[in-house]
């Protein structure tokens, strides 16, 4: 019997620093599988965010740049404009992309920059230790919202896919989740679709992945999956929000 499962070539042989039960590993693997399947590793450059995935360059086996907080879409813009032949993706979390980097992502999407953004939404700041994110749910506890997010003071969670879909510029905008195998299969399809649009120099492409953070949510990995299914999915519905043409 031949080998049926192996590490994608686009992933390095490295142990990640991610916490037990964290879905970053799945997201990394899906992106790497897509890079392999499209045969683009040698012309792909990833951009790591500030956040838990800041060390992503240690886990992928392609060229990588490391951005400042939220600025990955601006760096990707600079790169794609001067080297349109490169395949460029940013990998960003919710604090990075939806808070400090809101300006950069909206304008890059609106210019229709031909790169791909993988957006990890786990409704909390991970690396800095569980502070409130723009995507934190009403009532959800965070270290900077100890009694739960008070939407009277901090507003409602931001839905990035819906917000970016409102732009008139064509783009590919999708939200999938990493909570169970069916979702994960769809997530991979969306990521592949996003990279294919980039390969065809078609449009900006954006895939949001609803994820978990058991550590900062204070839950077991299984409970985290259940909480995300019950709480996040109703507020952050899955599917394709926008396609070019």
């Amino acid at each position: 019997m031949g080998k049926t499962f192996s590490r994608p070539e686009a992933l390095s042989d490295a142990h990640t620093h991610y916490c037990p039960g964290c879905t970053h590993g799945i997201a990394h693997r899906l992106v790497a599988e897509v890079i392999d399947e499209l045969g683009i590793r040698g012309r792909t450059v990833g951009i790591a965010p500030v956040g838990c995935a800041v060390l992503a360059y240690n886990y992928f086996s392609c060229d990588f740049q490391e951005a400042a907080h939220g600025r990955a879409p601006a760096m990707a813009t600079g790169m794609k404009r001067v080297r349109p032949d490169l395949m460029v993706f940013t990998y960003q979390g919710d604090g990075d992309l939806a808070s400090i980097g809101m300006g950069e992502i909206v304008h890059a999407a609106n210019r229709g920059e031909k790169f791909t953004t993988i957006f990890i939404n786990n409704a909390i700041y991970g690396m800095t230790g569980g502070q409130m994110a723009p995507t934190t749910m009403p009532g959800q506890r965070a270290t900077t919202a100890p009694t739960g997010r008070n939407v009277e003071e901090t507003g409602m969670p931001i839905r990035m896919c819906e917000l970016l879909s409102s732009l008139a510029t064509p783009g590919y905008i999708a939200r999938q989740a990493l909570l169970k195998p069916q979702y994960i299969n769809k997530a991979k399809k969306a990521i592949k679709q996003a990279f294919e649009y980039q390969m065809a120099h078609k449009c900006f492409s954006f895939v949001e992945l609803v994820s978990t953070c058991p550590t900062n949510w204070g839950m077991t990995p299984l409970n985290a999956l259940k909480w995300a299914e019950d709480t996040l999915i109703p507020y952050y519905p899955l599917g394709e929000f926008k396609k070019p043409e």
Binding site: V45, I47, Q65, A67, A68, R71, A72, A74, M75, A76, T77, G78, M79, R81, V82, R83, L86, G103, E104, H107
Partner: peptide, 16 residues
Amino acid sequence: ESEVAVGYMIFGAAAC
């Protein structure tokens, strides 16, 4: 869209 973003466009291009 801003000098902040431009700084990083420069970074991305220079890093290439």
